[in-house]
Design a protein around this nucleic acid. Structure first.
Lengths: 116, 116
DNA sequence: AGGGGTGCTTACCGAAAGGTGGGTACTGCA
DNA sequence: TGCAGTACCCACCTTTCGGTAAGCACCCCT
């Protein structure tokens, strides 16, 4: 990921920078839905994601301050992911876009196949 | 561009599909700002965009029904671009995201360099 | 006659994104 | 004994994205 972080043309540009990545918004969505999630739970919640991609996107979201990562020194290892305040506010800002997309799916008839 | 158009996990997924592309949201923004724009006007309004990319992104936005393209059989040729109703509604859905991005820019201090 | 503007198209190329398949160190269960 | 689960990391490879440069067909201005 290109790690731009500015300079930006405008706000949307900045937001898109942080949110671009095949799984980012889906991860945000999943975390907003369930609160705290473990790695394997996210993996199961996002059908089709590879482990590499999931790690990568989570790390980037963490770097950008949207996701909080907490490691428990246990065996077997446990790592929990949750949204930060900024992540939650981003999700709220994404909500209208999600609604628009849902409307669009309805219009063009592209059904979702995966259970949420 | 991968031309997915479904199946989607959810609304955001669908919206992101339509909006992903380096210049798409900027084009939408520009058209929302000025109403009708000609090719060269858009080009000048988006510093750094190449002609190829601008054509490509405009065509995709047109295919997705967000932008209306009207060709006038004149010489020199004239082509006008404008948002469709769906494009306008997408822009409205993007507004909160834009606001979030602006807030974020303020927080992390990544200044925009280009005049809007 | 030459340069610039109009709105594109095509070919090529490098970089980046994303997928595949392996390995790790440890435990619990059968 | 051997397989599954935990949460990753690594090297490699392919696909896609986006940029560069050129051409086109016609016009106007100087």
């Amino acid at each position: 990921m290109a790690a731009r972080r500015g300079p930006y043309f405008c706000g949307i540009d900045a937001a898109m920078d942080v949110v671009s990545g095949k799984w980012k918004v889906l991860i945000l969505w999943e975390l907003a839905d369930h609160g705290v999630r473990r790695f394997a739970q996210l993996r199961r919640g996002l059908p089709g994601v590879s482990e590499k991609m999931l790690v990568q996107q989570l790390r980037e979201l963490e770097e950008d301050g949207l996701v909080h990562r907490e490691v428990f020194a246990e065996v077997p290892p446990r790592v929990e992911y949750a949204l930060t305040d900024e992540g939650r506010s981003l999700n709220e800002a994404l909500a209208p876009l999600g609604a628009w997309g849902t409307e669009r799916i309805r219009r063009i008839g592209a059904e979702k196949v995966y259970a949420s």
